[in-house]
Amino acid sequence: MPTVTMTVNERQVSGEVEGRTLLVQFLREHLNLTGTHVGCDTSQCGACVVHLNGDSVKSCTILAVQANGGKVTTIEGLASGDALHPMQEAFHEHHGLQCGFCTPGMVMSAVDLLSKNAKPSEKEIREWLEGNICRCTGYHNIVNAISHAAQQGDAA
């Protein structure tokens, strides 16, 4: 079985995986980073979004071996110590989450949006979230949270 090595949340990790092992399986099952979720099997729901080399990716659509040598950030790596990342703070402040299952993917996706477009319009936020499904919030407060985070700055 191939061995993969990568940096996850600023920690060097490695493990033996099958060729078919997905990045999300490697994160959840090998590293016990269960904050990244699996909500579908067709790469649509976005619950599994993480950052790979600075870009948001669906970790259910990438093989662990494809991430070999890469730099991965998961929801567990976003806060610094006890201080929440400004995007996490904005989701809390504006009630951008209910059941919490889509939340890690939403937050990771939103952080990447602001890194690429610091001041998105409401329409741009809604279009960016096309790959993240939430069944609880009706998106209203998620969009609100991301708008506010953008206005505050430093949430990219």
Binding site: L33, T34, G35, T36, T74, I75, E76, L78, A79, L84, Q88, F91, H92, L97, C99, G100, F101, T103, P104, V107
Partner: peptide
């Protein structure tokens, strides 16, 4: 309850 969900600790 938000904090645990926002930090991946749900």
């Amino acid at each position: 309850e938000d904090r645990r969900f926002l930090t991946g600790k749900g």
